[in-house]
Design a binder for these strands. Structure first.
Lengths: 197, 197
DNA sequence: TTGATATGACCGACTGGTCAGTCATAAAGT
DNA sequence: ACTTTATGACTGACCAGTCGGTCATATCAA
């Protein structure tokens, strides 16, 4: 009922706890995968007791989904900016998209989300559907636009690739996976890969 | 001491059991991942009791590694044939390699090995190293040869891509992953992808 | 041929330990 | 004082790995 100061401060503290738990959870899930991660480990990393986690999340599953979602949000916002590309050449736009992808996903810790998705996706269909709808299909649509635009301007040859933007991001994905799996055995120069790409 | 008939038949039965266990294990690991797979489930699928598994394998870890290894062997043998390509154009050779990869890995159940590797690899460094040494580096070397050959014949432009055969297989990998994760949401035509590729 | 004995592959109930989720109690906040 | 938030010991389910016992088959003896 009282509402003289809309954000009293308790809200902030609560959000703070929540974010600490989410980031601790994300880190543990990255390292161990879903099944092998212990709630105790998350609690310890977040600096709370295990019971506290259950004040904020219903179950391990929920926590996992929320953690992944929270990690994707920034990427989502980044994608929004894709849609607006009023500038000149389609090639420049395409190059820019690829560079952004390398810089913001492949070249950062965020690439670990990719691995988590690949590893645990099939067990979390809701999450997969969310990711597909909110991230993938938007990104692919943006790609298709740019490619189409390039064809219309005569920059690109019309080819089957228009319908398979997958092809364009394949090399980047493989770079991310390689770095996470074999970098100690045979290091990979992401910049070199990007240029070759 | 008796040795008139060296393979009495017991050997065959033993190998048979072993193969049944391996294939049951592989199927379960594919579906559930390492941590979430129960030995009971493997035993049931293989039609043996749980104890029997331990007559053939030391531990869940060992069983996992052996199962994955056994699934990779055929791929390894296929790679051997890569090295010999005395024919004409480098482009034809390259196309052939890509086609073989699509037909024998991406287009079959074997693509699930890829996912298993990505999901569990980091927890099985020995397996990763084995895969890297026996499969990846051989395949990449073969690729580099073909590319090099193409450049010498003037077929391909010399470019940074020579050193990054990763780039070539990226699209195929993404195709495999897509099919395993999003095929129900947005089916992907592997043949179309291959052609675009 | 037939019964007696030996072998070892196979079984599955059991153990010890782990971990998600709960709840009685305590601390903090108002 | 009372409500909200946090704690961590506890519970019950689950599961990797074990081990004493069974039984089909092989070997031998008579």
């Amino acid at each position: 009922m009282n509402n003289p100061t809309p954000p009293p401060g308790g809200k902030d503290a609560k959000n703070e706890r929540m974010r600490e738990i989410l980031s601790a959870a994300l880190e543990e899930f990255f390292q161990e995968g879903f099944a092998a991660t212990r709630l105790d480990a998350i609690a310890e990393r977040a600096g709370v007791a295990k019971g506290t986690i259950y004040l904020y999340f219903d179950s391990k599953e929920t926590l996992f989904e929320e953690a992944v979602r929270s990690a994707i949000l920034p990427v989502l916002q980044r994608i929004e900016t894709f849609s607006v590309d009023p500038q000149g050449s389609a090639e420049a736009a395409l190059r820019a998209m690829i560079s952004i992808f390398y810089r913001d996903v492949i070249g950062t810790d965020r690439r670990r989300i990719l691995r988590l998705f690949i590893a645990e996706g099939p067990r979390f269909p809701r999450l997969l559907a969310f990711y597909h709808a909110e991230v993938l299909s938007r990104g692919m649509a943006a790609m298709r636009n740019v490619l189409q635009y390039g064809v219309e301007r005569g920059e690109f040859r019309a080819s089957a690739a228009i319908n398979y933007p997958h092809v364009i991001f394949g090399p980047a994905l493989i770079g991310a996976l390689w770095k996470m799996m074999f970098d100690n055995l045979e290091p990979l120069d992401i910049d070199g890969l990007r240029d070759a790409h």
